[in-house]
Simulated scan of single mutants.
Amino acid sequence: MSRILVRVVTTVVVATSVILLASGLAFAGPPTPPPATYDLPTVIDHLRWWVCGIVGGVATLFLTVGGVRYLMASGDPSEIERAKGAFKSAGIGYALALLAPVLMTVLRSIVQV
């Protein structure tokens, strides 16, 4: 038992020594500039792209789920109706993704920036 303990302690000491000796000195670099600040139109523009991406991704998920349900329905009318509902949700999602730039433009005009 003590032989195993000596091997474990020796391995830990050697590994720690190698890690400490292999790492070089840490030198401080120049200070990083502060993060960029954005004005409101830039924030709205970034928000528009995020909304388009998220809504498009969710719509694609619904389209995939609807397709899998339709393929796995095996003629079951209730499962086919669920698949059609998923297809309808995907269509609404894609429509919203296409309308997001228009909605963000309306938001920008309301904020008047």
Rank of each mutant, 00 (worst) to 15 (best):
A15N: 08
V14L: 12
T11A: 01
I19D: 01
T37S: 15
D45R: 02
T60Q: 06
V18E: 00
L40I: 09
I19G: 02
L99C: 05
V113G: 07
L61I: 02
A97F: 00
Y94D: 13
G93D: 02
A73Y: 05
G56V: 12
G53M: 02
V43I: 07
V18H: 14
M72A: 12
P77L: 04
R3S: 15
A28D: 13
L21F: 13
H46K: 14
T37I: 08
G24I: 08
A73D: 08
R82L: 04
L96S: 09
L99V: 07
K84M: 11
I80Y: 11
M72W: 07
I80E: 09
R108D: 10
P31F: 04
L21D: 09
V68W: 02
M1F: 10
Y70T: 12
I110V: 02
L20I: 08
V13T: 08
A83C: 03
A83P: 00
H46R: 12
L63I: 07
V102T: 06
E81Q: 15
V102P: 09
T42C: 08
V68L: 02
L107D: 09
L98E: 11
A28C: 11
A86I: 04
L71T: 05
L71S: 04
L47F: 12
C52L: 15
R108C: 11
P101C: 03
T10W: 08
F27S: 09
D39Q: 05
I110M: 10
S23W: 13
P30S: 07
G53Q: 00
S109Q: 05
G85V: 00
L25C: 10
S2C: 13
A36N: 04
T37P: 14
I110N: 02
T11S: 11
G85M: 09
I54H: 07
H46M: 11
W50C: 15
A97N: 01
V111W: 06
V58E: 00
A83D: 02
L40Q: 06
T37H: 11
H46W: 04
P101L: 00
D39F: 05
I4D: 10
I54P: 03
Q112W: 13
G75T: 03
G56H: 03
V51R: 07
D76W: 04
T10R: 04
R7K: 13
V12Y: 12
P30W: 14
G91I: 03
R48T: 03
A95M: 01
P34I: 04
A36T: 14
